Simulated scan of single mutants.
Amino acid sequence: MSEVPEYIYKSDKPIQLKSLINEALYILDKFGIPLSGLSQRRMERMAMAFLAVANVKQNTDWAKADYSHALRTRDIIRYCNNHFHENISESSYDDIRRKDLKLIVLAKIINASSANPNAARNDGTRKFALNPEYTALIKKFESDKWEQEVEEFLSSRETLEEQLSDKRDLNLIPVIFSSGKTFDFSPGKHNELQKLIIEEFLPRYGYGAEILYVGDTANKFLHLEAEILKRLKFFEISHGELPDIIAYSLERNWLYLIEAVHTSGAISPVRLLELKKLTEQCEANIIFVTAFLDRTTFRQFSPDIAWETEVWIADAPDHIIHFNGDKFMGPYLEK
């Protein structure tokens, strides 16, 4: 099974509990729950409500997930307070139904009113339990072919993410990787620039570089080669710290950390120091690149660019701006 991404990285909960919450979010993500745009706390609350209904208290409990374990909203609050270091007031029981479980119930991963299908929405006796069809997959979590089994299960079903996306696919930006794979990015200037980095910058300056990570506004981990990053001793994956694009050239043993800047995010001295500290153990040589769509945007950020980094501007794709004086000092000879 693939490495579980770190959806929650700002939580002050114990490491093991944070790991369990990230596993729960990974399961929900794979089941088609749209997590994009949700705050860290909202995802954390959703994951804990899901864990409570599944009766999963620790990482080793997934095989014990139980669809006969039905809880009322107040029961879910007590479960979270007792097992997940929470202090949720019982008076906020309606938030469990309206916020924490809303998407999971809409996706039919959890059944509402499991004990009484005719119960009113605000009935205090209304209970929530896992859908038996999803329970079988949850119990197999961490097995070698778990992702494949999920894909096969969902192949004949429309996920909540697909239902909510409706016809927005018409505006997606197709991006072709050097491997020939095509990924659809959400519309927007930032993703237009990411497309140009992948299709224009890396073929020119990447020495056969392979994309190891790229995110999207609708999918934080649109493409992730976690095993390769692990072999390179890259720092622990955390979306809050990752650059926009990571690519690796096996030919040069160069790892490109690229920020695609439309309104923010240039590699400043502070950001450079942060990235250098995070990649101290990395076995590849690091290339730091800030990319812009045009020179006008570059001029806005040029005072913030750190030395010992590169700048690429998409409207002049055959040129690189090198922010370091001595490395390339010398005359340009006539060809």
Score class of each variant (00 low, 15 high):
Ser156Arg: 07
Ile228Asp: 04
Phe84Tyr: 11
Arg72Met: 10
Lys276Gly: 03
Cys80Lys: 04
Gln16Asp: 05
Glu23Asp: 11
Ile237Gln: 07
Pro303Phe: 08
Asp29Gly: 01
Ile110Arg: 05
Thr159Ser: 15
Lys108Ser: 09
Thr297Ser: 05
Gly265Glu: 01
Glu210Ser: 14
Ala49Glu: 00
Tyr207Lys: 11
Glu308Gln: 13
Ser11Trp: 03
Ser302Thr: 12
Arg295Gln: 11
Asp12Trp: 12
Tyr205Glu: 00
Gln58Glu: 08
Ala120Ile: 12
Ala70Tyr: 00
Arg295Ile: 10
Leu293Gln: 12
Trp254Pro: 02
Met43Gln: 07
Phe183Tyr: 12
Leu103Lys: 14
Gln281Ser: 10
Arg157Gly: 01
Thr309Arg: 03
Asn324Ala: 05
Ala112Met: 06
Lys277Val: 00
Val261Asn: 00
Phe288Pro: 00
Tyr93Val: 01
Leu255Asp: 03
Pro331Glu: 03
Glu280Asn: 01
Leu38Pro: 01
Phe323Tyr: 15
Gly206Ala: 09
Ile258Ala: 02
Leu130Arg: 09
Leu130Glu: 00
Ser89Thr: 05
Phe235Tyr: 11
Val261Arg: 03
Pro243Ile: 01
Glu147Thr: 09
Pro5Tyr: 00
Lys64Tyr: 06
Pro14Glu: 02
Leu242Met: 12
Asp95Asn: 10
Gly206Trp: 09
Lys139Tyr: 05
Asp75Thr: 03
Arg271Asp: 01
Asn87Cys: 04
Tyr134Asp: 00
Leu222Ile: 14
Ala107Asp: 06
Gly32Ala: 04
Lys57Ser: 05
Ile77Val: 06
Tyr213Thr: 07
Ala129Glu: 07
Gly265Tyr: 03
Arg42His: 12
Ser165Leu: 12
His85Lys: 03
Lys195Met: 10
